[in-house]
Design a protein around this nucleic acid. Structure first.
Length: 811
RNA sequence: GCCGCGGUGGCGGAACUGGUAGACGCGCUGGACUUAAAAUCCAGUUGUAGCGAUACAGUGCGGGUUCGAUUCCCGCCCGCGGCACCA
């Protein structure tokens, strides 16, 4: 009888009592640090999809344990941030209480699954002992000038009532609540992640064990483009419009210049603009558009001519008109472009509408008139109408023209990035207080290090104020303090840090969770770091994973960590969708609760099923029938040993299969191909069952049978441990040594040799594994079916793949 | 539009660097056991034709390379994810 409920309870208790999962620290052993992205303890608890990644890392960790590693496999809570706070507000709880309750639920649910976390290293980003170091790292950034105050317009979510970083948007909407985001000028703390853009991009090369897709997403996000910044002097003034372009080679085709509506030059030029009322009207029109409307690619381009002025092309000396148009973004490059309608589609579209000149300066090699391109040829070619540069290829022209610019001092080579500096302050309660003080006399002064952590104070109301200030601003006796520098009156910074702050470095804290003197002890860091294997959702590719790399590089520059990339190997977990193929959510009523599944089918069956569903990285639809299948598989294993060991009647083939399975399961776990590992275990179980039924015996002894349990144990720990004990083995199966396969036993003596004629399979013949080509041909000629295909034909060619196939080409 | 990933039975999915397509699981069909059912065990299950051995077709579509292509190349179609007036 497979009584999973009692069995799981029994072993979970024993494992806990014996501290099985305590992180090993034997310095003689190699280390392995395997990490899950720690969860956000939401109010809804876990659904069946959440633990998929945890189960996979648990399997990996248990195997490493059995391979004799010190394994660090910790878990903790990313508990600051908007959802927890919103949940608390909705349920009229203090966020701290809501968070604690949610963590308890999560922890209980994870426990039910038999995950091997060493809870002695549990961390929580909302714990002052933890966020002391988040604040400390922030202050170090501030000291290095990497945290700065800015009043530029930022993304503002009117529903969450807080500023947001670019990374917090999805399709121009708040990633959390889906509201349309506005641009609002606000005083903000911003982190200079752009200073690290080049390293964040270049160092992706150091990460061969990251999935290509994630690296591509980061590359896109960082968005490096190489080009030039060029000064277009405004005629009859000493001012100039700076434009950024990646296509200097097209500059002789420039027929006008465009400023973004928000470009500061626009207002600066007010006095000289002859049609200012029209310009002002356009600016107002643009201001009324939402970001979504503005960036809608299908909308018609609009703009307005700045009358009474012209910009001078430094190459040709030609004066061209200046427009304002909102297809130029102020937030990228210089907020101004040189328009080359003949070689840029956006400029072309605008030029057609506003009847600007279109002048070709690059000719296609295949079609020098660019006739086939409908007036707009955007690829590289040969320069024409380009003065001394005519005749050059685009590529060499870009080099020569950049040289020319720098020589004449009217421009320079420039690299631009799409990534923006990280808007780091939130006008909300539930976050780490930013440990800075504003003094009228001294300016911004840091909270002295010995006063960290700066505790998040209690407030009467932690609901967002909507005034652009956080609820902390209302606590006057907290806000008003003496300046630590001059002793004069000063005010605390009242914004808090964003949700992503605490998760930027948490993986370091697991290494040394209780250290009050340092973020992490150097020796311990040197031993455990970097994280060998990191597993989590792909949605973090351009948020957490960029932020954490940024912080880590900063900490590396500070000398806090010994290597400049935090995560050696990275895999993303594919979502588990509902049975209807949609994302699991309350909204669709398709959520499957793991507690129920564990109660009904057992934690082991659930674990095996989630691994068996398909490739780990791939999304898969839940199907409870599949869970029934893995349950049956475990029952089959249980039955094989229900009354303890059976008499042994040795069988070579099955012993060989056992060793093949040991090999396959090992390499599959290593490659995270857990679905095929399960399938290999199933095949072995099926064969053993068949043998048992035929002979009322095992094909090998209990010691070898135990090997099956050892390779099953990471997947189905409770049942494996139970049978392990039942067979008389001493100590926990997870203290045993992972079995080795015997290469000699894996070799097959005979194979089914495929015989094909002209590449089509016509027969299979059982033959010795090391059969020679000549012998194989003899066998084939003896075969009746093959004889029919050879009748009246001549063998023109023989292809022989040893141990696999013989192909006869006949005419 | 750009970048990435994918398309294989009724379903989830296997198939190592080109070498027996459909492993394993679900579902379905039949059988054994049972008074019966469940469970279990055994057999079958890509399509078409045939009682059958077998033959032909078959991995999104159209071509190509090869003795041989799910795998490689060229041109398309569809789905998913990311980025997007980024100059």
């Amino acid at each position: 009888m497979y009584d999973h409920q009692n069995l799981e309870k029994k072993w979970q208790k024993r494992w806990q009592d014996s501290a099985l999962y305590q992180t090993g620290t034997d310095p003689a052993k190699p280390k392995y640090y395997i990490l899950d992205m720690f969860p956000y303890p939401s109010g809804a608890g876990l659904h069946v999809g959440h633990p998929k990644g945890y189960i996979a890392t648990d399997i990996f960790a248990r195997r490493r344990m059995m391979q004799g590693y010190n394994v660090l496999h910790p878990m903790g809570w990313d508990a600051f941030g908007l959802p927890a706070e919103n949940y608390a507000i909705k349920n009229k709880l203090h966020p701290r209480a809501a968070t604690a309750a949610n963590i308890a639920t999560f922890k209980r649910q994870l426990g039910l699954l038999g995950l091997s976390y060493g809870w002695d290293r549990e961390i929580n980003t909302t714990d002052p002992k933890y966020y002391k170091w988040t604040q400390w790292a922030f202050l170090e950034m501030w000291k290095k000038g990497l945290a700065y105050e800015s009043s530029e317009p930022i993304n503002w979510c009117p529903s969450c009532q807080t500023g947001l970083a670019n990374e917090d948007l999805e399709d121009g909407k708040c990633e959390r609540c889906g509201s349309d985001v506005e641009q609002k000028p606000m005083r903000q703390w911003v982190l200079r992640i752009t200073d690290y853009a080049e390293r964040l991009l270049a160092d992706l090369e150091k990460l061969p064990d990251w999935e290509e897709s994630i690296k591509e997403m980061q590359k896109n996000w960082i968005g490096r483009s190489e080009g030039a910044e060029i000064d277009f002097k405004i005629k009859d003034t000493d001012q100039a419009i700076k434009v950024f372009t990646t296509r200097v080679d097209t500059i002789f085709g420039c027929t006008y210049v465009v400023l973004a509506p928000e470009n500061k030059l626009v207002v600066a030029l007010k006095e000289r603009v002859k049609n200012w009322p029209a310009v002002e009207a356009y600016l107002a029109e643009v201001k009324n558009k939402t970001d979504l409307q503005r960036t809608d690619l299908n909308k018609e381009k609009t703009g307005v001519l700045l009358e009474g002025m012209q910009a001078v092309n430094p190459f040709s000396g030609e004066a061209v008109p200046i427009f304002i148009a909102d297809y130029v973004l102020n937030s990228y490059g210089t907020g101004a472009v040189m328009a080359v309608p003949a070689h840029d589609e956006r400029d072309f579209e605008f030029a057609e509408k506003y009847a600007c000149r279109i002048r070709k300066s690059v000719a296609s090699l295949d079609d020098p008139e660019n006739k086939t391109f409908g007036g707009c040829y955007t690829a590289d070619g040969v320069l024409v109408n380009s003065g001394e540069f005519s005749g050059l290829s685009s590529e060499s022209a870009r080099l020569r023209m950049a040289d020319w610019l720098e020589e004449k001092k009217c421009g320079l080579r420039k690299i631009n990035y799409k990534i923006k500096d990280w808007v780091y302050s939130r006008q909300r309660y539930w976050g780490e207080p930013i440990p800075l003080i504003h003094c009228a006399k001294c300016g911004v002064v840091p909270v002295p290090e010995e006063e960290l952590p700066l505790m998040l104070p209690e407030v009467d109301s932690y609901e967002p104020t909507g005034t652009g200030e956080s609820p902390l601003a209302a606590i006057t006796d907290w806000v008003n303090i003496k300046c630590p520098s001059c002793g004069g009156p000063a005010k605390r910074e009242t914004n808090t840090m964003p949700q992503w702050g605490g998760s930027c470095w948490y993986y370091l804290r697991y290494i040394d969770p209780d250290n009050n003197e340092a973020l992490v002890d150097k020796q311990k860091e040197a031993y455990w770091s970097p994280v060998d294997f990191y597993v989590g959702g792909a949605e973090h590719a351009t948020r957490h994973l960029i932020y954490a790399r940024f912080w880590h590089k900063f900490l590396y520059d500070l000398g806090v960590v010994s290597y400049d990339e935090p995560f050696t190997k990275l895999k993303h977990v594919g979502l588990i969708m509902g049975e209807d193929g949609r994302k699991m959510s309350k909204r669709w009523g398709n959520v499957i609760n793991p507690d129920e599944m564990v109660a009904k089918f057992g934690a082991d069956a659930l674990r095996v099923y989630e691994m068996f569903m398909g490739p780990f990285e791939q999304a898969a639809n839940w199907n409870t029938n599949g869970l029934v299948g893995t349950r049956k598989f475990l029952e089959k294993i249980e039955r094989l040993s229900a009354e303890g060991p059976l008499p042994v009647k040795e069988d070579k083939k099955l012993l060989s299969l056992l060793h093949k399975t040991i090999k396959k399961v090992g390499s599959d776990i290593e490659n995270f191909r857990l679905n095929t590992a399960v399938s290999a275990l199933m095949i072995l179980a099926n064969e053993l069952t068949e043998y048992r039924n035929a002979h009322q015996a095992w094909p090998f002894d209990a010691a070898r049978f135990s090997c099956l349990l050892q390779i099953l144990a990471p997947f189905a720990p409770h049942l494996s441990e139970e049978i392990w004990e039942r067979l008389g083995n001493q100590g926990s199966i997870f203290k045993s040594v992972w079995p080795q396969f015997d290469p000699a036993l894996i070799k097959d003596e005979t194979v089914n040799l495929a015989i094909s004629i002209n590449g089509k399979l016509r027969a299979t013949i059982e033959a010795a594994a090391d059969i020679s080509e000549d012998e194989a041909v003899v066998l084939a000629r003896d075969n009746e079916a093959i004889q029919r295909w050879l009748a009246g034909k001549e063998i023109a060619k023989i292809i022989f793949v040893p141990g696999k196939l013989l192909n006869l080409v006949v005419k």
